[in-house]
Amino acid sequence: MLSRTAENLFWLARYVERAEYIARTIDATLRVTALPAAYIGKTNEWESALLTAGVSQSFYEAYGEANERNVIEYLSFNAENPSSIRNCIEAARLNSRSVRTALTSEMWDTINGAWIELQEVWSKGTTSREELARFLRFVQETSLRFDGSAYRTMLRNDAYWFSRLGVHLERADNTARILDVKYHVLLPEEEHVGGPLDFYQWTSILRSVSALTAYHWVYRETLKPWLIADLLILNDSLPRSLASCYGNLVRNLDQIGVAYGRQGPAQRHARGVRNRLEHSHMDDVFQHGVHEFIQEFIADNARLGEIVTKQYLI
C-alpha cells in the first residue's frame, strides 16, 4: 500500500486513542478532585493531568493557573494544544479523509459522525458538569466504536496492521505517562512517601486506564501499589499494560513482515522491548528504580515510532 496511506492509518488510530485517553484522564481527575481535601492531600491533580497528557509546558505558556476550568479547557477544546481532544478529533477526521479508500464505511461513519456532532461543542463549549460528562463519554464511545468497527469490518491486511500499530504504540505511551507522573505513589510500602491518602490516587490511576475492576479480578486483593504497578507494566492480560501493548506490537509487526516477506529494524526493536518486559519481575523493576524504568520505556517506545516511520511510512 502507499506509504502515505499507511502513515495516515497509523496516525488516525493514534489520534483516536489519544482523544479517549485524554477524556479518561479528565474523568478520573474530576472524580478525585471532587473528594474533600482531607482525602487527597495537597497535590494539584489538575497539574498531574497536564503532566500525564504531556502538555504541561505549553499550558503554562498560555494560561496562568492549573485549575479545573483552565485545564479542562486546554485539554478538551483548545485549538492551540495539538493533543487537545478537539485537535485529536480534527486530525483524525483529516487523516480519515485522506485515506477514505482504506477505511471501511463503518469507520468513516464513526469519525465523520463524531466530527459533525462535536462541531456544536467546539463552538459553544460545555456549560455544565452534566454536559461535560456527556461530552467525555461521547469521546470515549467514539473511540470504542472506531476500534470495534475496525475490528469487525477491516480486511486483515497491512492496512489493519498499521492501524493497530498506531493504537498500541499510543496506548503504551499513555499508560507509561501515567506511571511516570504517579510512580511516587506506587512505591513499595517501606519506601513510600505518601500515606493512606493514596488510596484515592490509586483508584484514580486504575480508572484512567479502565482497570479498576480488572485489578480485583486479577489479584483478589485490596489495592496495593506494587500490584497496581505490576498490573500496568507486566501483566499481559490487561489490554492497556505495557506488556500487552508490546505483545500486540510484536504480533502486528510480524504479520506485516510475513506479508511483505521481509523483517527489519522495527521488528527487532519491538521484540527487544517485549523480551525485556517478559523477563522482568516487579522486584527488579523497583530495584532498578520505577522512574528510570518508565523513562527508559517511554524513550524506547518513541524510538519504535521513529523506526516504523522510517521503515514503512516515508
Partner: peptide, 21 residues
C-alpha cells in the same frame, strides 16, 4: 491507489509510487 504528487517519483523515465514495500 489514490496518489498525490508526493507519493510518486520518477526514476529513469519511469514513474513509481512509494509504498510500504
Amino acid at each position: 491507489e489514490l496518489v498525490e504528487g508526493r507519493d510518486l517519483i520518477v526514476k529513469n523515465d519511469e514513474v513509481f509510487m512509494r509504498t510500504t514495500e
